[in-house]
């Protein structure tokens, strides 16, 4: 028996919004530790790694490890039927071929349940090597989303250049070129507004705007985003989900031909 309850459906809606542009379907691996999802996009350029810890749920029970392959388009249709404030419960029997989503209104007067067929997905699990990153940048998630959106007007790629002084995002194309520099903040009233840079070695890497923009769909989950970079290895874009877990996106860099 698997059962996981969150007091507000909005969290699960935001999690799904953060992955459904990159993935059509994905396997949710459930254990007593929580829910894990790891999947590459169809073109094998990026990877989504989601962790939702069991202690972050309002109720969590998982008697046997369970892998639930879900069509994210179908899951999205179902979650649209929930109000943001509804309690959401996911339930499945051991070895079941369906999962049930139950939504309950705050006043307990409306209860709906939606049963969704599970899929058998060919899982390809990738081992992600431990890496000491040369640069780790933390910045407001909204600021990162804004930069990705603005720069994608100028080219298909963004060059991220990180030094001790700051981080520079650049794009160029037919229109011309654009550069956005962010300096490390000296003092901020609120921690979530800070830009911090931990640098061992300066790095300059090129990434596809398309994917960076897809990652920023996680912005509603977190005030801050963390970018971890080293030369010639995938970028890690991490959003922490308060009290529940995190979503990490890995993106392979582009190289000069």
């Amino acid at each position: 028996m698997f059962e996981a309850r969150l007091n507000a459906a909005t969290t699960l809606k935001k999690v799904l919004d953060a992955i459904k542009d990159l993935l059509n379907e994905a396997t949710f691996d459930c254990s007593d530790a929580g829910i894990q999802l790891q999947a590459m996009d169809n073109s094998h350029v990026s990877l989504v790694s989601l962790t939702l810890r069991s202690d972050g749920f309002d109720k969590f029970r998982c008697d046997r490890n369970l892998s639930m392959g879900m069509n994210l388009g179908s899951m999205s249709k179902i979650l649209k039927c929930a109000n943001n404030e509804d309690t959401v419960t996911m339930k499945a029997q051991d070895n079941a071929d369906t999962v049930t989503f139950m939504f309950e209104s705050q006043n307990h007067e409306k209860v709906s349940d939606y049963e969704m067929k599970l899929m058998n997905l060919d899982q390809e699990h990738l081992g992600i090597p431990e890496t000491d990153y040369s640069c780790v940048v933390r910045m407001p998630a909204m600021e990162f989303a804004r930069i990705c959106r603005d720069l994608s007007q100028f080219g298909e790629s963004v060059i991220i250049c990180c030094t001790k002084e700051g981080v520079k995002f650049s794009a160029s194309g037919d229109v011309g070129s654009a550069n956005i520099k962010l300096a490390q903040t000296s003092s901020v009233d609120k921690e979530e507004e800070a830009v911090t840079i931990e640098m061992q070695e300066p790095v300059s890497l090129t990434f596809a705007c398309r994917y960076l923009n897809a990652f920023t769909k996680a912005t509603p989950l977190s005030n801050q985003v963390q970018l971890s970079m080293s030369a010639d290895v995938p970028l890690v874009v991490e959003y922490r989900i308060p009290d529940l877990g995190h979503i990490r996106y890995y993106l392979a860099p582009k190289i000069e031909e």
């Binding site: 990738l126 081992g127 090597p129 790629s157 596809a208 290895v233 995938p234 392979a252 031909e257």
Partner: peptide
């Protein structure tokens, strides 16, 4: 022009 690399060249299959 820059060429997009695949993630598979960085991560091992487990």
């Amino acid at each position: 022009m820059s060429k997009q690399q695949s993630l598979k060249s960085f991560f091992n299959r487990t």
